[in-house]
Design a protein around this nucleic acid. Sequence first.
DNA 1: CGCGGTTACGAGTCGCGTAAATATC
DNA 2: GATATTTACGCGACTCGTAACCGCG
Lengths: 174, 174
Amino acid sequence: MRLRQLEYFVAICEYGSFSAAADQLLVAQPSLSQQIRALERELGTELLERGRLGVALTAAGRVFLPRAQAVIAAADEARRSVADLVSGREGELHVLTIRSVASGALPAGIVRWHDQYPGTVLRLHDYSHRRDLEAAMRAGRGDLAIGPRPGDWDGEVVSLGFGWPVVTTCRPTP
Amino acid sequence: MRLRQLEYFVAICEYGSFSAAADQLLVAQPSLSQQIRALERELGTELLERGRLGVALTAAGRVFLPRAQAVIAAADEARRSVADLVSGREGELHVLTIRSVASGALPAGIVRWHDQYPGTVLRLHDYSHRRDLEAAMRAGRGDLAIGPRPGDWDGEVVSLGFGWPVVTTCRPTP
DNA sequence: CGCGGTTACGAGTCGCGTAAATATC
DNA sequence: GATATTTACGCGACTCGTAACCGCG
């Protein structure tokens, strides 16, 4: 039993047919046929009743579907929890700002951050001029910068709704 | 991320080293190395700190371990639920007994069964003599028989603790 | 014939095991 | 040198995609 088979099964149930699920999953139809058949063979029973217009769940399929979704959800949670930790640099997230932000919108954001990731520590570096902030950002001295977006910045940008965007730099873990 | 990788990871944490886990899992040591490395690469961080006497969890590993166990538990539950349904003949489990059992120990067992598998129906066939029960059992007329074990029965046998064993016949689903 | 699913088969990938190498005591 | 893990590499199995096939309106 593999995670991919469960994802295929859930997708087929969600979209109502092998073809529709194949389109969504960006795989060929026969792959779904094969994987679902392998899954059914391993479980010892059929999960889907193939019909002219899509598929219907068998009794076993009705039992299996929510469990399969639970497995996928658990896997996503496992992935996400580690990703959060990694993006938080194992408890230290270096944030670059300038004075006006640090004394303005940031404090509320820090509170929300700590609500979400209690195990992490935010380390603030604030600069007196946006030029210094930009230089530090380009040098990779932080994980996240809050301030006006430089003209030719091609990294990920998220707006905070304060008129100024957030520029995130995805620094790979060493 | 694959289920097998999670199983490997959990086993290594449980047994404290790659080698010990490899012995338990009946695979070669390098396979664990490869799979764990692939998992770490996908997650973007190391999970285990390799040391002289076994391994220790990193911060990410400590976060990941319980989630990995949850995924595996969910997968087991999914498997088991379908297996229960299949072994229960999609809601109908035919139980062969004799009079003395049906009026004695069985009622309490039925209650416990329905607690555990509310979606299933038990269909009882009770015979007046143990010889008739044995004949029906050998003919495959039921999924489960409760009564004295015939002399040369080679199927699975579970004792109920009432002095008489249960003889289960694993009839394959048609 | 159109639609949906299945079967057949070839190409690329992947996991596993054996054997050699590395690292740390 | 001993223990524990990693790297190298070949074999077998597996997955996927293309193409042909089947069953039904």
